[in-house]
């Protein structure tokens, strides 16, 4: 996704009210998107032709004349008939709430009614264009790679995981730049990573001091950590790592902030050949 997201703002039908369409078009431009505006009185076929010719990622349909139930789904249908299903279609205008539900059933991703902000629209478009890209460019993470658990007392913790549960220790190493000693146990398909701080001012040391021992992060196994960090960046996530860095067991890793992953510190983790 190198070029900016490209949006077609279109006025289907005979409606002449284009203040909304024009304001949204300029607002999205100011948000960094590339915007093409069709002008008034476009037929469904004209809108589809422009969308294809301009290779847009998103079509924003605007109608204030009450023709939305006929014209909006006709655009979705027309695109489908041409085998195009990767253009995000959104709508706006004077549209009653019950019609919004119906339009969503008919393939519109969202409908923005009076009072919506340009910020909301831009964010929605960004998030959904990226999600759309996911199907093409990305495989979802293949599995949970490991669960990181911060420990205060390694021996007592091992007594539980190794001796009581019976998981085997498969690997152990110091990770100096994280000021941590890591012990990996095999738990079925995934690893439990016990993290013991080697210094009070390391991240695990601070975590244990403020929250006590417990689950620290979840790591997902992905093909390409760099690509996933970029996806997160585009989706507006707060990144802890801008680029991949080496983690335990010769894996490439990268963290995103728990604020962006709903309270769980999340790691992308990629197995390398060196293992």
């Amino acid at each position: 996704m190198n070029r900016p997201i490209r949006v077609l703002i279109a006025k289907p039908g005979l409606d002449g009210h284009d203040r909304g369409a024009l304001v949204v078009a300029q607002g999205l431009r100011d948000e960094g998107l590339e915007v093409i505006y069709t002008g008034l009185r476009q037929t469904v076929d004209q809108i589809i032709a422009t969308a294809i010719q301009e290779d847009v990622d998103c079509i924003g349909l605007s109608s204030l004349s009450g023709a939305h139930m006929t014209l909006f789904p006709a655009v979705v249908e027309g695109l489908r008939q041409r085998g195009i299903d990767d253009i995000l279609i959104i709508g706006g205008g004077v549209i009653p709430p019950e019609d919004v539900l119906e339009l969503k059933k008919k393939g519109l991703a969202e409908v923005f009614t009076p009072g919506s902000t340009i910020g909301e629209m831009a964010e929605f478009i960004r998030n959904h264009i990226i999600k759309k890209g996911e199907l093409v460019l990305f495989e979802p993470p293949s599995q949970v790679d490991h669960i990181g658990i911060a420990v205060a007392d390694l021996d007592q913790t091992l007594a539980f995981y190794r001796d009581h549960l019976g998981f085997a220790v498969v690997h152990e190493e110091d990770i100096p730049d994280q000021k941590v000693h890591a012990v990996f146990l095999q738990a079925g398909e995934l690893h439990i990573e016990l993290l013991l701080s080697t210094s009070d001012d390391g991240p695990i040391g601070k975590f244990v001091a403020s929250k006590g021992p417990g689950i620290h992060h979840i790591a997902y196994r992905v093909d390409d950590v760099a690509a996933w960090l970029e996806r997160s960046r585009l989706a507006g996530h707060r990144l802890i790592d801008e680029t991949p860095r080496p983690g335990g067991q010769n894996k490439w890793i990268g963290f995103i902030h728990p604020k962006s992953s709903h309270g769980v510190l999340t790691e992308y983790c990629q197995i390398t050949d060196k293992e």
Partner: peptide, 11 residues
């Protein structure tokens, strides 16, 4: 008229 599609009697 084809351009009237969906607009008849609306506004």
């Amino acid at each position: 008229h084809p351009f009237a599609l969906g607009e008849v009697g609306k506004v």
